[in-house]
Amino acid sequence: MIGMSDGQALTRAISTISQSDPLIKLLQQVRLGRMQATDAGLRAVTESWLGIYEQALSLDGFTRFDLRRLNPAPRLAVLTQVGVLSDDHPGLISLRASYERALSRATGG
């Protein structure tokens, strides 16, 4: 957002993304066999998280350094490895594109 001091946009984005992160709350259940990767609840949380992540990336004020910290690739890799998402999932493709757009408009470091 315009007018945010250094680091505020990054802090806000990390907080927003973390609140809905399926990795923290639900993937452990998949790994333990208590939930299936195809569970409707997990899918709904994941879909919501993808959208929230995209919204967070649309904030103004990120540097390239900030965006490297917000790179969704590691989390998307985990979600695809456990079968929650596929590489051709529209939300995954959209989030990757949003990240690349944010990188292209970012300033500095």
Rank of each mutant, 00 (worst) to 15 (best):
M1P: 14
M1L: 13
M1Y: 08
M1A: 14
I2T: 13
G3H: 15
G3C: 12
S5K: 14
S5R: 14
T11D: 09
T11L: 12
R12F: 12
A13E: 00
A13N: 04
S15N: 01
T16M: 08
T16D: 10
I17L: 06
I17Q: 04
S18F: 00
S18I: 04
S18L: 06
S20H: 11
S20Q: 09
P22L: 04
L23T: 01
I24M: 09
I24C: 08
I24D: 13
K25E: 14
K25D: 15
L26G: 00
L27M: 11
L27W: 02
Q29H: 08
V30T: 01
L32N: 07
L32T: 10
M35V: 05
M35I: 07
Q36A: 09
Q36G: 13
A37L: 06
A37H: 09
A37M: 06
D39C: 01
D39S: 05
A40W: 04
A40L: 10
L42I: 09
L42K: 00
R43V: 13
V45M: 06
T46R: 00
E47W: 03
E47V: 09
W49M: 00
L50Y: 04
L50S: 01
G51D: 04
G51Q: 07
G51K: 04
G51N: 05
Y53C: 00
Q55D: 13
Q55T: 13
Q55L: 10
Q55N: 15
Q55E: 15
A56I: 00
A56C: 04
A56M: 06
S58V: 08
S58F: 07
L59A: 11
G61Y: 07
F62T: 05
F62W: 02
T63V: 07
T63Q: 09
R64C: 02
R64F: 02
F65C: 06
D66L: 09
L67H: 03
R68T: 12
R68V: 08
R69V: 11
R69L: 15
R69F: 11
L70P: 02
L70M: 10
N71D: 14
N71W: 11
A73Q: 10
A73D: 06
A73T: 07
A73F: 02
R75D: 09
T80C: 08
G83R: 02
V84H: 01
S86D: 14
P90T: 08
P90G: 06
P90C: 11
G91V: 05
G91D: 04
S94I: 01
L95E: 03
L95V: 06
R96T: 09
A97C: 04
Y99L: 05
E100H: 05
E100R: 15
R101K: 12
A102M: 08
A106D: 00
T107E: 15
